[in-house]
Amino acid sequence: MKPRKILPVFVILACLLLLYILHKNRELTQKNDLSRRMAKEKTVKTVKLSKKMQLKCRGLNKKILSKRILDKIIFETLTKQIQLMQICPWKQNAKLVAQYRSEFKQCCNASQDLVLTQENTVMGQKILYETNRKKSVIVKDMLFQMLPKEPLWSQTLGHCAVVGNGGILNNSRCGQQIDKADFVIRLNLPPLNNENDVGMKTSLVTANPTILRRFDFLSYTRKSFEKMMEVYGQSVVVMPAFSYASCTEPSFRAFFTLKDFNLQNVTFFHPEYLLRLNNYWKSKGLLAQRLSSGMMLVSVALELCSKVTLYGFWPFSSNLNRKPIFHHYYDNVGPKKGVHKMSEEFLLYMQMHSKGLLQLKIGMCS
Rank of each mutant, 00 (worst) to 15 (best):
K45P: 07
K80I: 08
S235G: 06
P250Q: 01
T156L: 11
E119T: 10
N262D: 06
R213K: 03
A98K: 04
Q81F: 07
M364Q: 15
S111M: 12
L320F: 14
G167N: 06
K5V: 12
D33M: 13
S246T: 13
D71G: 10
Q83F: 07
Q86T: 02
M123V: 04
G199V: 05
N25K: 15
P324R: 08
D260S: 10
R26D: 09
E230M: 06
M85Q: 14
E303F: 02
Y20N: 14
L22D: 04
L84Y: 02
Q54V: 13
I185A: 09
G158K: 09
T309P: 08
E226N: 05
Q264C: 01
V162I: 13
G158Y: 07
E41V: 05
E303N: 06
P89C: 03
P250F: 06
L114S: 06
L304H: 02
M123W: 00
F326P: 04
V238I: 14
Y273C: 01
A207D: 00
L70W: 13
G167Q: 03
T257I: 14
L277Y: 07
I127P: 07
P324F: 13
T210M: 07
V266W: 06
Y129K: 01
L274D: 00
L310I: 05
G356C: 10
S102A: 12
P240W: 01
L291P: 04
K45G: 10
E344R: 05
P3L: 15
